[in-house]
Structure formats: C-alpha cells, structure tokens
Design a protein around this nucleic acid. Structure first.
Lengths: 215, 215
DNA sequence: GCGACTTTGTTCCTGCGTTCACAAGCGGTT
DNA sequence: AACCGCTTGTGAACGCAGGAACAAAGTCGC
C-alpha cells in the first residue's frame, strides 16, 4: 500500500494556505462560487504556479478547465489547518499589545477565541477587556484545564516570558505564540512561534538605507 | 580594484542581524565587553555557525581565539542596518493595534520614533496617544514632508489599506510595514513588508493538529 | 460526436539558505 | 621564542523553496 500523499506539508505552504483561506472567505462573502488559480493567486499576492503547487498538497481539489469551487476549497483548507471549529486560546500579559490582541476582531472571525486573559500586576486584574476579565496568573492552570485551551499567546515583558512559557507548558498548552523579544525554550511536544515587531521595522530600515547606497 | 564584499546581504540574514543587535544591547547593559559566537548564538536562539556566516557579511569583525567585542559589533550592526540614528515613522489607523504600537516602548528604544499618528475617523482625531495627537489624513503629506519620515505603518482595516499605501507613497514614504490582511502593491522604490497575526495563529493550529494525527 | 480551448496537476530546474567540517589566526604559557 | 588551546572565518555539500514549462483532463461550441 503506497502513501500517495506525504503527511508533511512545508511550513511555508501552511502559512500561504492561511492566506488563501482568508481570500476564499472574502470571495464567498462576495457571492463567488468558483475561482481560478490565477484569480486566487492575485488576491493572495502570490504566483499562480506556486498556488497550484501548494494546493496539490491537499490532493486534487480543482476541476481542470474550470477552476476551484470556493466553498469546497475553503472547507478543505480549514480542515487541514485545523480551524474548522473554534479553538480556545489564553493570553498572558495584558499591556498595550495584549489588550489590542484581546480586542482584535480578526482572531474571532478566524476561529480563535480567547477564553482567558492573565496578568501578574494586581492593578490590571479584574479589568474588563474584549468581553473577558483579566485574571491573576494563579488561575492559569485551572482555566486551561477547564476550557481545554491548546494555544497560548505571550505578550509579557521579555524578562518573564520564559517563566510564563514554562507555566503554559505545564498547564497543558501545546502551541505558543511569543511576542516577547527573547527566544523561548519549551519541552518536546510544545510548538513555539515568534513574532518580533521591531525586527520588521529594522529590516525595512535596512532596505531603505540600501536603496540610498545603490542609487 | 576588487569588490571583496558583495553589496547584497540576504534578507534572512538582515532579520537575524536585528536579533543579534538586541542581544548585544542586553549584553552591553549587563556589563559584558566580549562575547563568543556560541554565547551570542544561544542568546539569539540560532546556530553558532550560521551566526558567524551572518556576521561575515559585515567583514571580519571578531578576534580569533577571543570572540567579538560587544560594543564594536553592536555599532557595526547598527550602522549596516541603518539604525545608528533615530528614524521617523508615521502610523495610519489608530484602532486597537495602532494604539498599542504607538504606545509600544520597544520601538522608541530601538531608534524608531513616531512623528505622526493618522486616522480617518473624526471621533479619533485629537485624541492623545503616546505623546502624540491623532491627526486627520489630510495632514499626512505635510507631516511626512516636514519631518522627513521614511517609514509608514499601516494598521487600518483591509478595505482602505491600499488607498493609504498609495497616499504614503505619494507623500514620499519609502518603506511600509503593513498589518492589514491584504497584499499591497506599491510603486518601484517603495518596499512593503507584511505582518499577518492571524496567519501565525493558524500555522500554530496546524502544527498542533498535525501532532495529534501523527501521535 | 468531435475538436479546440481552458485550467489544473506535475515535473524539472535553478537559486538560495542552512549546516557541517576544516583551515587560519590570535593569546596565553612555558 | 615556540607550542598549545581556543575561536573565528570560509569552503563544500545538502536540502528546500520558487518559477517556468509541459502533460492530463474536463468543458464548451459546432
């Protein structure tokens, strides 16, 4: 028995699938029922050939000569990404960035629901944000256990990010999104992704400076 | 006359240089004057050999058998990245995320200063945030011209992101950081980088689901 | 019913990024 | 002054992502 489809999808492809998913949702809301790779690629800002290659990881899901069915493809990508039903998330560190994320509507509409907001500062505890109330860190384990939250988001200062990461892992969170500017180490079986906002600005600064030099 | 050092530094390397820069700043504040590639690599969360290769793009900047001088290396990276002196930025879209970024101390300490906050909603204009006052979009061109801002940050809804991008380009902004979930097209000579927060969460969801399947 | 056109799925290839491994160079020691 | 250990810098190989071109397949028109 052969294994016609490798179980591993490249991470770069996964990231683009999320973009396609959003574009498809927009198309569906606009009433479109079918779309070609060229159109979808333009909406997602990628190369049409690359898009088809990405989709080929899901198995044949288009009709030659016609294109892709918007609804079918949308459901298929959502299932592969694991976002067909809502996922519970917890957020630790309710500063400016944490508050913005807790309030950010873009997460809720894509199937991510914050079921717990946590902070260490007594002044912030009890504060209402985005339909939730900020809780003390002591309640983290209980909330994760009772809600089954599998994703944790860290928006704390860098100094405490590692200890928060440890507590999330112990509580049972399996995936962590880290906004603190430090590399985190987590036990096996726990995935960590890092988003570094100031790095993006610094890359931009470099590109801008380079253009001046080469001009 | 040969050109011993190629002028182009890979973008992946540039992003890591920004991480090294932060780690070096932390080390300098801790009083360290010298550091080896192994130590710095651990602080940055990368492979030591890769770190040395990254630094080799700057030319020889370490001493064999000893390591790197923290202060010298820090200055050199800052100069290459173009962040040796502060850079003026403008921010358009003062919602939750925009407010958080305007208030985020991490930018200021890394040489990025917001010199203008803009929004289209009359209700937000005049509102004070992070030492600045929110202005109407009409003043964008004037502020960019008078301050020489070279970097623009877009945190608007997706629907208006492209028009804001166009206005920034016309006003003279050369580098744009886009948080809106749409691909932007900009004229030649204007760099655009995209940060998509919900994509990061969806990649995490995929990794988490994949672990369940393979287990 | 048949042909031509459209669009997908795949294959090949080129280039880049990453990693390993080794040679070169410097400081400290005897 | 010569040796030894340590660390940097670089060369080579590997794997991966991206792009272009081609074959397969389905639909529309006649």
């Amino acid at each position: 028995m052969i294994q016609p489809r490798p179980r591993t999808i490249p991470e770069a492809t996964v990231a683009r699938l999320a973009v396609y998913l959003r574009a498809l949702t927009t198309l569906a809301e606009g009433g479109r029922s079918s779309v070609s790779s060229g159109e979808l690629a333009e909406a997602a800002g990628v190369n049409p050939a690359g898009l088809r290659k990405d989709l080929s990881h899901l198995g044949p899901c288009g009709v030659r000569g016609v294109g892709y069915d918007v609804q079918t493809l949308r459901d298929r990508i959502a299932r592969v990404l694991g976002v067909e039903h809502a996922r519970a998330c917890v957020l630790v560190g309710i500063g400016n960035l944490g508050s913005a994320l807790a309030d950010y509507a873009g997460f809720g509409t894509r199937g991510f629901e914050f079921v717990g907001l946590f902070d260490a500062a007594p002044a912030r505890i009890g504060q209402p944000i985005g339909g939730q109330t900020v809780r003390p860190l002591d309640e983290l384990a209980d909330v994760v256990a009772s809600t089954g939250a599998s994703i944790g988001v860290i928006t704390t200062p860098a100094e405490v990010a590692q200890s928060v990461c440890d507590r999330l892992a112990v509580a049972g969170v399996r995936s962590i999104l880290n906004f603190a500017p430090v590399p985190l180490v987590a036990p096996d079986g726990v995935d960590v992704r890092k988003v570094d906002l100031s790095v993006e600005l610094q890359v931009l600064a470099f590109l801008g400076q380079q253009r001046l030099v080469s001009a």
